[in-house]
C-alpha cells in the first residue's frame, strides 16, 4: 500500500487481528456444529428386517435413519432386464451385478437423488420406479434413466444375517 516500512505498531495490529479471528472462529464453531446430527441420532445406525414373507415381484419399505429403504424381491424378467442394459445407455453407469449382489434382492434407499421424494413402485417408462415430484424414471435396478435426478438410487450398507433377515446399516 504505502512505501512506509511496517512499524512495531503495525505488527501489533496484525497480530491482534489474527488472534482475534482465531478466537472468534473457535467460539463460532460449537454454535455451527450443534446443528449436525447428535449422538442419539447417530446411535440409530442399523435396522434388522424380516423378509421371509416377501414373494417375487413385491417390495417392502422400511424406515432406516428416518429414510425409506426399498427391499424388492425381483422376478427373473426384471433381473434379465436390469442385466441386459448397455453401460453407455446409463446416465450414472453402474452394473446391476454391483448393485444387487444377490440378484433376487434389490436393497436401496427409496430416496430420489433429485430432491429427496419417495419414488413409486412399478411405475415409469423403465418398469422400475417413478418419482412423482419432478418426473425421474428409474429402471428395475433403481438406476436413473430419464429426468432431473443425477444419480442412481443409493445402495446402503447391508448384509444377510440369515436367509430370512437383512441387516441394514
Amino acid at each position: 500500500m504505502s512505501d512506509k516500512k511496517p512499524k512495531r505498531r503495525d505488527f501489533l495490529f496484525t497480530a491482534s487481528y489474527a488472534v482475534g479471528a482465531v478466537g472468534a472462529a473457535a467460539v463460532v464453531w460449537p454454535l455451527v456444529d450443534q446443528m449436525n446430527p447428535d449422538a442419539s441420532v447417530k446411535a440409530l445406525a442399523s435396522t434388522e428386517v424380516d423378509i421371509s414373507s416377501l414373494t417375487p415381484g413385491n417390495t417392502i419399505t422400511v424406515l432406516w435413519r428416518g429414510k425409506p429403504v426399498f427391499i424388492r424381491r425381483r422376478t427373473q424378467e426384471e433381473i434379465a432386464e436390469a442385466r441386459s442394459v448397455k453401460m453407455e445407455d446409463l446416465i450414472h453407469p453402474e452394473k446391476d451385478e454391483d448393485r444387487a449382489k444377490n440378484p433376487e434382492w434389490l436393497v436401496m434407499l427409496g430416496v430420489c437423488t433429485h430432491l429427496g421424494c419417495v419414488p413409486l413402485n412399478d411405475k415409469g417408462d423403465y418398469n422400475g420406479w417413478f418419482c412423482p415430484c419432478h418426473g425421474s424414471h428409474y429402471d428395475t435396478s433403481g438406476r436413473i434413466r430419464k429426468g432431473p435426478a443425477p444419480w442412481n438410487m443409493e445402495i446402503p450398507k447391508y448384509e444377510f444375517v440369515n436367509t430370512n433377515t437383512i441387516k441394514i446399516g
Binding site: 455451527v32 446443528m35 449436525n36 446430527p37 447428535d38 441420532v41 435413519r65 428416518g66 429414510k67
Partner: peptide, 17 residues
C-alpha cells in the same frame, strides 16, 4: 443438507430449528 436437517432426513431436530 445433513447439517440443515440435524440428522439423515427431515425429522424432529429439523422441526425445532
Amino acid at each position: 443438507v445433513t447439517w440443515l436437517w440435524g440428522g439423515y432426513s427431515v425429522d424432529n431436530p429439523t422441526l425445532t430449528r
